[in-house]
Design a protein around this nucleic acid. Structure first.
Length: 354
DNA sequence: AATCCGGGGAC
DNA sequence: GTCCCAGGATT
């Protein structure tokens, strides 16, 4: 297949218009105040599938606690997960932690500035590597995040059907080919800002776009149609029961396995149940006895707690329980220290109602 | 090529 | 409620 190339004049116009626009309109973001590759790496990982406004407080806090690569590499994973708590996609925190140790050991603590080295770090894919190379090192490396995909797709009127047939290689090529010499850092950030501020998914503000006259999506009259159509499957709704088991001033927590869903996070004992199950408190007491070997009295129904995940919805019916006797797995945690343990959102909410 | 992996902002 | 976010890893 012939590589896609803009006419040289068009390309220069795109570059000039975008850079001019960026100079006046760029967002003021905390990670733009630094050129520290470590800090930029942190920001890029946090920004994976996560909106800028959500990331900002996490980024500030993370860098206060782990100001440099060594401090991150030397920290226990549980502490990293704790700082990450609430941000989601916790494998990012695990990968970041592991990658920081690789960088410390194999690269003398310096974030590598070669694509092949970056791609070997867990949690760094092509787009994050491109962002680090361009933003931290001003190298001519392409990025292709959600914003840039949309901007470039509209720019060349790359339809969803074409995207399905041809994949995204074309968009990568264009992203690469557009970068002007010497200003990769600025240009890539300009592409992202355009995508988030002007070339938005549903109602792009074409009238304010510096690329309007050069944009084939605008020319087509239907710039909204170039966002990938997602046939969202109906997500299942799961139900469960959870127990806050108190013994003196402590409660029973279990830690999830280190990999997979919410890996490494702590939670209150909980079990899936059917949608229409009854006698939940009896069910819960039996479960606790079977799995933990602990006898309890189920006391209060603390009500339902719900959380929507990407692929399912969960509603937990929560009961407070009084410990009687027995011993098993799990860990008794002082209620005062619950805040120190990384938890997913719904379990953090439970910890607040004790 | 599909699917898993969180949580939240915007509408 | 829906859509989507500065994606990566796994299968």
């Amino acid at each position: 297949m012939r590589p896609f190339l803009f006419n040289e004049k068009i390309k220069e116009k795109i570059q000039a218009n975008l850079l001019r626009w960026f100079k006046e309109n760029q967002r003021d973001l905390p990670w733009r105040k630094t050129k520290d590759p470590y800090a930029i790496w942190i920001s890029e990982v946090m920004l994976q599938q996560t909106q800028v406004q959500t990331v900002i407080p996490y980024y500030q806090r993370f860098l206060n606690i782990f100001p440099d690569l060594r401090s991150l590499a030397k920290a226990p994973l549980s502490k990293v997960l704790k700082v990450w708590e609430g941000l989601g996609y916790y494998s990012r925190a695990r990968n970041l932690h592991q990658a920081s140790q690789i960088v410390l050991n194999n690269f003398n603590g310096r974030i590598p500035d070669r694509l092949e080295d970056l791609l070997r770090l867990p949690g760094v894919g092509k787009s994050t590597a491109g962002a680090i190379l361009s933003i931290a090192f001003n190298k001519k490396a392409p990025i292709l995040d959600g914003n840039v995909k949309r901007v470039l797709s509209r720019l060349i009127a790359f339809s969803n059907d074409q995207r399905k047939e041809r994949g995204e290689n074309l968009l990568w090529q264009i992203s690469q080919s557009l970068i002007p010499k010497g200003v990769a850092r600025t240009f890539n950030q300009a592409l992202m800002d355009l995508g988030s501020m002007i070339c938005t998914p549903r109602h792009p503000n074409c009238q304010d776009c510096p690329l309007m006259k050069l944009c084939q999506g605008f020319g087509s009259g239907k710039p909204e149609s170039y966002t990938p159509s997602s046939f969202r499957k109906r997500i299942p709704h799961f139900f469960g029961i959870a127990a806050i088991i108190q013994k003196n001033e402590k409660v029973l927590l279990i830690q999830r396995p280190p990999e997979g869903f919410l890996g490494g996070l702590w939670e209150f004992p909980n079990w899936r149940i059917g949608r229409n199950e009854r006698r939940l408190s009896v069910r819960l007491r039996n479960k606790i006895k079977e799995e933990f070997g602990i006898e309890v009295i189920v006391k209060n129904d603390l009500g339902p707690f719900s959380q929507a995940y990407s692929h399912f919805r969960l509603t937990l019916q929560v009961f407070s329980c009084e410990y009687l006797h027995g011993n098993g797995m799990g860990r008794w945690i002082s209620i005062k220290k619950l805040d120190q343990f990384p938890m997913s959102r719904i379990h953090r909410e439970l910890s607040r109602v004790i």
